[in-house]
Structure formats: structure tokens, C-alpha cells
């Protein structure tokens, strides 16, 4: 017998629809062209297009699956899972030693050191060198300024989302061109083939 566990949300139950009354985010479109923008934290249309204010999208009927935030973050920032685990492990704690983080997460100590450096490369952590009483220095990893992190992660995610939207638009245009040239044929895999392999 197949089926979902009683408490397991189904695809349908997890689906969400764009709610224009929600203040979480807004979608605006230009009445004269295909321009659609996403706006966060704005009460008014964020920009004009063709010399007119953009209009709030109110008739989006399509339901979408809510994103798995963890997966989105991993994909959008190229953030290794271990790196995200490290961030989640020590938020609100600390100072913690690298050994403690390793033991807590079940990673090798060398893995922690490697991913701490990766988080610095990604701009999610800063590294400072502190003097050691016995000589030499100690590496200390700490969060970047929260406002800076907010701006960088949001813009970084928008870049990723913009790239995805542009690819979808390109694929739609490719599909449209194909159908115009092949009116008697079913839609083949041309839509997916138009996405470049990365």
C-alpha cells in the first residue's frame, strides 16, 4: 500500500500561492512590457517602467512549492553543508574552540579548519589573528557586521535568482522559437536542452 504518513505534509498541502496582501514581499509588473520585479520591505511600487509606476501583481494563480531554505542557501552561495552546520552550531554560543565545534558536529578537526577558511572566502566570517602568550598567533573567526551580511546575502541571493529567471526566460524563448518553426510537432525536450550544462 502506498501513501503518505498521517503527519507528513503532502505536496499539495505544502504548496503556497503568492499572497498580494501579505507584506512579506511584493511582485510588481509593468503594464506595458514583460518587466517583473520582486520588492522586499516597500509599501510603494519600487520603481517605474515606461514612465509609469509598476503595478502590483494580484492575479498569480500558480501554486509553487515553498523552497527548502537550507538547500537554497547551499545552492545560492555555494555554501558547503559543513559550513552551514558550523554557522548554525555556534550562533549565540561561544567563544568555542575548533575542537569543540568538531566534536559537536561529528566532523574531523581538519574539516572544521578547512570550512572556516571557506566561510571567510564567502564573506560570511572574518578572521582575526590574536597574539598568543606562548608566542605566535591564534586565528579567531567571527561574524561580519550583521547589516553588511544582510545586504551581501540578499544581493547574492538576488543575483542567483536573477540568473535562474534569465535562464528560464531564455528557455521559454527558445521553446517559442522552436514551436513557431515546427508548428506540427509536439513540444520536445528542446525546453530543457536549452539550459546550458554547468
Amino acid at each position: 500500500m502506498t501513501g503518505n504518513e498521517p503527519d507528513e505534509p503532502t505536496a499539495e498541502s505544502r504548496a503556497v500561492q503568492y499572497d498580494p496582501e501579505s507584506s512579506r514581499y511584493d511582485l510588481y509588473e509593468c503594464p506595458d512590457c514583460d518587466n517583473i520585479v520582486l520588492a522586499l520591505g516597500r509599501d510603494e511600487p519600487p520603481m517605474s517602467c515606461h514612465d509609469n509606476p509598476m503595478e502590483r501583481v494580484t492575479d498569480m494563480e500558480m501554486s509553487v512549492q515553498p523552497p527548502d531554505v537550507k538547500q537554497v542557501l547551499l545552492q545560492a552561495f555555494g555554501l558547503p553543508k559543513a559550513g552551514l552546520d558550523i554557522c548554525l552550531c555556534v550562533i549565540g554560543e561561544g567563544p568555542l574552540s575548533a575542537n569543540e565545534v568538531a566534536e559537536s558536529l561529528g566532523y574531523d578537526r581538519s574539516t572544521i579548519t578547512r570550512y572556516l577558511s571557506k566561510l571567510v572566502e564567502l564573506g560570511l566570517l572574518e578572521r582575526s589573528e590574536l597574539n598568543r602568550e606562548a608566542g605566535g598567533v591564534v586565528n579567531v573567526y567571527h561574524s561580519v557586521d550583521l547589516e553588511r551580511m544582510r545586504r551581501e546575502t540578499l544581493i547574492g541571493f538576488y543575483v542567483w535568482a536573477g540568473e535562474a529567471a534569465a535562464l528560464i526566460e531564455d528557455a521559454n524563448l527558445t521553446k517559442q522559437d522552436y514551436l513557431e518553426g515546427n508548428p506540427d510537432q509536439d513540444l520536445p525536450d528542446i525546453f530543457w536542452e536549452s539550459f546550458p550544462d554547468r
Binding site: I86, I91, R132, V137, V138, H142
Partner: peptide, 24 residues
Amino acid sequence: ITGEELLELDTDKLVIVDAATPNA
């Protein structure tokens, strides 16, 4: 001295000290 310098960083956020590989 390391502890005093850490407090001078004035960061109340995530802090991990990698003490065993100071020059890595």
C-alpha cells in the same frame, strides 16, 4: 593576552577560536 585581545574585538557574535593551528 589572547582573551583580552578577543574582548577588544568587541564582537558579540559568532566566535570560533582555532588555537591549535595558529600559523596555518
